[in-house]
């Protein structure tokens, strides 16, 4: 299958407060295939946002190579090509909205591509419809809820017709219903629009339906695999201060006590079934 993102032995150095060179990323290698839904988890300072910023050339590796659809992100001439291929959504919706009317905000990207007005109209309408915000096309963004604002930000990226969307903790500042809206939107884009998704979060529940989960700690990848594989490593995850879903933790505790339940349980129904079979 076609590779959308290839990260090969990447290191990224920056200067710390004390003036020392610190490696925020240290020997990271991974790839994301076309159409995949990849979740990256790690706590603050683990390097996950630094990694994400490499996916659309906001940052460039100090060592190693990042290829987006085969294009090297260090190639200055290809920056716009890369940013059109991989769009980014950030944590705080208020920092990403630039216009005073929703549809104007969504039009901002395509306008900067120099597209004809009719084409922009089509893209804006489509993008707002896809995220379920078409009703609010003429609203002022500051009257929207956090989840709605974040969906407008996603529509703004969609209007650029990217093949990959990278979301850096898009749900961290939202309430549970806002979080649900955004997650459903992201899943829809992946399943029905065929967009490759890289979702960065520290909410484990959001990783349950991913194709692949990558766990970062101190600039390195510590675990990588299907959600079942990764969440079964309860001790490793807890050791680096991450949560596991309550169901997975319950399975872990029951196993420690000698009960015969599978360790790779992620969902409520699976847990109920397993206990009923004891």
């Amino acid at each position: 299958m076609e590779l959308m993102i290839e990260v090969k032995d990447v290191q990224f150095d920056y200067l710390s407060y004390e003036g020392q060179e610190v490696a925020a990323l240290n020997g990271v290698t991974l790839d994301v295939k076309k159409g995949e839904f990849v979740v990256i988890i790690g706590h603050n300072g683990s390097g996950k946002s630094t990694l994400a910023k490499h996916f659309n050339a906001l940052l460039k590796p100090s060592k190693g190579v990042v290829l987006i659809k085969g294009i090297d992100t260090r190639d200055e001439d290809m920056v716009w090509e890369i940013r059109q291929t991989a769009g980014m959504v950030f944590q705080n919706p208020d920092n990403q909205i630039v216009a005073t009317i929703v549809e104007e905000d969504v039009a901002f990207g395509p306008e900067n591509l120099g597209l004809p007005a009719e084409e922009i109209r089509i893209r804006v309408d489509e993008a707002l419809k896809t995220v379920g915000m078409d009703k609010y096309a003429n609203s002022a963004p500051h009257y929207l809820s956090g989840g709605q604002k974040q969906r407008v930000a996603i529509a703004g990226i969609l209007a650029m017709r990217p093949e990959v969307i990278v979301l850096d903790e898009p749900t961290a500042m939202l309430d549970p219903s806002g979080r649900r809206e955004v997650i459903e939107t992201i899943k829809y884009l992946n399943k029905h629009e065929g967009i490759t998704v890289v979702h960065i979060t520290h909410y484990m529940e959001e990783a349950v339906d991913a194709d692949k989960v990558i766990v970062m700690e101190q600039g390195k990848i510590v675990l990588q695999g299907t959600p079942e594989d990764v969440f079964s490593q309860v001790e490793v995850l807890k050791g680096i201060g991450l949560d596991v879903p309550q169901v997975t933790e319950l399975a872990y505790r029951l196993r420690v006590e000698g009960l015969d339940v599978p360790q790779n349980l992620l969902r409520v129904e699976e847990m109920v079934d397993a206990i009923c079979q004891l």
Binding site: H43, N44, A172, M173, H202, G241, D243
Partner: peptide
């Protein structure tokens, strides 16, 4: 709000 699990705990 917005803190990672360790910061939250």
């Amino acid at each position: 709000a917005g803190l990672d699990p360790k910061g939250r705990d």
